[in-house]
Design a binder for these strands. Structure first.
Lengths: 362, 362
DNA sequence: CTGAAAGCGCTTACAG
DNA sequence: CTGAAAGCGCTTACAG
């Protein structure tokens, strides 16, 4: 109701000028009273602070930041709409890692969703001192903007080939390694559930996005047993990184002409979705069908059976990326930083030997 | 190495003045070219945009925000250090709800950790248009600062008694309701695992914090069977909202003189921690001991047995709080908004009847 | 359609 | 120890 009025009220905040006038000192003195007490007399300071307290003056953070040319905040660019991004525990761990560093340095962490569907706009307008991006085959346009703005940035799970600091695991090797486990159990009929190309991905031919690297790792392992991603017994599907879509994918898999004996996913949350759906529909895991994940999120030990997966230290990724970013914010040159952090394949119970097929015995 | 130099480079960003000079138009025209094309001629605009593109000019978001007196970001005040906060799936759901609304309105979401241990400092300095707080019996000091700054704010899981917009469930009723379920199964020996008093909580006697309200609900149900929180068979403990601390709490419980038949927790993540620990140490759930949670996070259906708990729609809480906040940011008066959203008690398998005690038969 | 100028609320060399 | 003044990079009435 009192729309206009309450807007007006907002503008009544006292400014440094009011305090200067009321206290009888200069703006300079008032500023020093708050920021550098040593520069003025004890009494002066007390008097200034007194009138400030009395009329409820708090220096405007926006004006300070503008004057100081910094925000005390770093940005995290969300690759998808928030609804998807923040449902993925892996992402949350990354955010936690970044957040810990922010807290350490007294910074805030700004989550930046695509602005009216435009990541470009979001990057142009972000009021931050630096940016962390994730899972992107960075569009050149976005990189350009960050450079134009002289905004330091580091990318997680991005393509390390670009001219920018990055932190990754060796996705190709990790994928190879877990696929070998799957093949060692005798599986030859499988579906690979890939990640959707995220918003940053272009269809470039020099593609080194995470899904591509992992597929390359799978392919290498498959090759060792005479298979490839094109083999008829190797199906490829794509699932959003949510429990729901994982379930949906499992549903699709059960509808397949020839049912696979293994599902190889690129994310635990999808793998767990598959387990939940299949368990609910009477399949035994890994008795009827084996499932492996990727990430080793906390939840992977909660499901039954517990997930065989690849451990990647998500919080560490965020932590290290943030540390590099802060070094850049402080003027250090880290353009060439390419962090590869170790992965581990974790053997638990969701992967088992190929079930004997009764229909295959004559 | 080139520390000083790269700092200098940073300052070379072109400003609106450069574009004005280079294009031969005024600052006004340049500003309009970017913000209100109708105010200048087509050709003018094109020329200005051309030189802007050529030398890579992007209007400084900080300066714009300062001039426009807004940030296009809302803040979420983290009640604890990030390490704890962001590990709790419940909290993540709340953030997701808030984030969805931010995305909808083209805002960013600023996560604000306690600044060098001081929430007060963090609130003074936060560069945001509004604030959402969670789980706080709000310190008067913090409220004062938000008011002084004329910063609209709404609180989730806070005490609705304060003069501020809030969104809650009826914690007293919810706790009463789940405790009745526990008692109905015959449990009389139990431990109640409460939430830690969060950073915002004062020890005030008019305490209406969430843990207190819930305890009141428990007490009411206990009273109906002649028990109270002070009864010798009713133990109270406190656990941090993390899986680890949940496990630790379960450990402590196994060391108790007389082992309870039920554990009543105030958060699923703690309940799951208990289940994991007890399961690992050979206890059957609910055969030997029953456990109930609170929140109904996604993970509560992943554990075995699945959790009996109270469903509170965490994402909705965030969503609705953010919607109210945006109305306030747009000048609406929502001071009296007190949202109570519905809860449901969810019966699954982690709660069972009291086990027969062999040692009690003569 | 266009521009000169004031203003947003701070900080900080610089001079006294 | 203190203050007048310039400056941060924009926006926007206002006048032409």
């Amino acid at each position: 109701m009192a729309t206009a009025r309450s807007k007006d009220a907002k503008d009544k905040r006292p400014t440094i000028n009011d305090i200067a006038r009321l206290s009888g000192y200069s703006k300079t003195a008032v500023s020093f009273a708050f920021n550098d007490p040593t520069r003025i007399g004890q009494k002066t300071r007390e008097q200034i602070l007194a009138v400030a307290a009395q009329i409820g003056y708090i220096p405007d953070p926006m004006a300070r930041n503008f004057s100081l040319r910094r925000h005390r905040s770093i940005g995290f660019l969300l690759p998808q709409i928030i609804h998807y991004t923040l449902r993925n525990p892996y992402m949350m761990q990354v955010i936690q890692g970044i957040g810990s560093v922010c807290q350490k340095y007294g910074y805030t962490l700004t989550l930046i969703p695509p602005l009216n569907e435009s990541i470009t706009e979001a990057v142009r307008n972000a009021a931050v001192d630096g940016l962390i991006t994730i899972g992107m085959k960075v569009e050149m346009e976005i990189v350009d903007i960050m450079r134009q703005r002289k905004l330091p940035f580091v990318t997680i799970d991005g393509t390390p080939s670009q001219m920018m600091p990055s932190v990754n695991i060796d996705d190709e090797a990790a994928a190879y390694s877990i696929m070998r486990q799957v093949l060692a159990e005798g599986h030859r009929d499988m579906v690979i559930v890939s990640l959707p190309d995220d918003a940053f991905t272009t269809g470039a031919s020099d593609d080194t996005s995470v899904p591509t690297l992992r597929k390359r790792g799978y392919e290498r392992a498959l090759g060792e047993v005479g298979l490839s991603l094109e083999s008829p017994s190797v199906e490829t599907m794509v699932s959003e990184c949510t429990l729901e879509d994982g379930k949906h994918t499992a549903h699709l898999i059960t509808k397949l002409k020839t049912r696979p004996t293994a599902i190889v996913t690129m994310s635990d949350i999808v793998a767990i979705g598959c387990i939940l759906y299949l368990d609910e529909h009477g399949y035994s895991i890994p008795g009827d069908i084996s499932i492996v994940g990727f990430d080793n999120i906390q939840e992977s030990v909660l499901v039954t059976p517990r997930l065989t997966t690849v451990d990647q230290p998500a919080a560490d990724k965020g932590y290290m990326a943030a540390e590099v970013l802060f070094r850049m914010i402080n003027g250090e040159d880290c353009e060439d930083t390419r962090l590869i952090i170790p992965y581990r394949t974790i053997i638990r119970n969701s992967l088992g030997p190929v079930p004997e097929r009764l229909d295959e015995t004559p």
